[in-house]
Amino acid sequence: MSTTMVDPATSNAPESALANRARFASLVQRQGALAIFVVVVAVASVSFDSFASQGNITGIAVQASFLAMLALGMTFVIMTGGIDLSVGSVFALGGVLAAWGAQHGTLVAFVLPLAVCGAIGLVQGLVIARGALPPFIVTLAGLLFARGLLLLLSDEGATTYKVPRGSSFRELAQGELLGIPYPVILVVVFFAIGGLVLHRTSYGASVLAIGGQEDAADLMGLPVVRTKVLTYVASALLAGFGGVMIASYTSSGVTILGVGTELEAIAAVVLGGTLLTGGAGTVLGTLVGVLLLQVIKNVINQIGSLDSDWQSVVSGTILLLVVTLQRVLTRGDRT
């Protein structure tokens, strides 16, 4: 990449200093989480012998894979300038439906949760895009709806559906390839596809354009409504699939899962450098954000004397730190 502004009309000494500053700011914006992640991993590896063990690393990767699915969908939603508060509940609903479905065959365990979650996403997307209602409210309604449905299905948690012993459905999250657990492989594949979709398809271009300047996207003739609907459907499908994965991993449908997970997903996306106002960001950044949150949890667990409640305190502090840094460095730069 060249280091100077090439527009001759605006290029002079103070401007290029400004451009350098802007470049640095955008580097922090994109890679701030990665820098903190590297530091935390380095310190943890030195401090705790058990941290860098293969077992622990694999554990972190598998634990992170469920949140990663939600955060991937959330990345696209936030990129359009929206928000999806329903994913935590939808994730839990997907898990319970998958565990129930597994009793009727592996196919049902996949199709049923994805169909129900996809439908929830479709309704939310249509109301948001066609009805021009605020995503915050619509997906808050979705959160309540999905959680309620889940409690009805499980008699308020009294009934726990078990995945039958010997069901091939367990393989999804418990199996491995060359020593790598399937969930980790799935996350890598999904994020690779996600990156390709965002940067190399017209749908992805529309997502970025809508988040950047919705009126302009409309005037340029981009399919604004269709893109938004697709984005909320994808978010719900990914959350539902995360649920399917966790049902397979735990061999059961756990009702109390996913409370507040939507907020963790949002945190991961923002840590990863996606602007909360939309229009810019990367899926890779989100993956780093997810891993950072998971590593912090793990490190605090390693410090035996610390209460696990410190996990949230530390995560919250780092989130605040990163967004403040982003804000300070990009001040007056973006509106």
């Binding site: 390709l196 940067h199 190399r200 398809t201 017209s202 271009a205 529309s206 970025l208 354009a209 988040g211 950047g212 300047q213 009126d215 302009a216 996207a217 005037l219 340029m220 003739g221 981009l222 602007l275 229009g279 810019a280 973006r334």
Partner: peptide, 27 residues
Amino acid sequence: VNLVPLLSVARNIFLGREPRRFGLIDV
């Protein structure tokens, strides 16, 4: 100006009509 400020100049010119190869945008 009714364009998208956060996207590149080239992106803005071709938004919605990007040149493609194998179905993907040919950057």
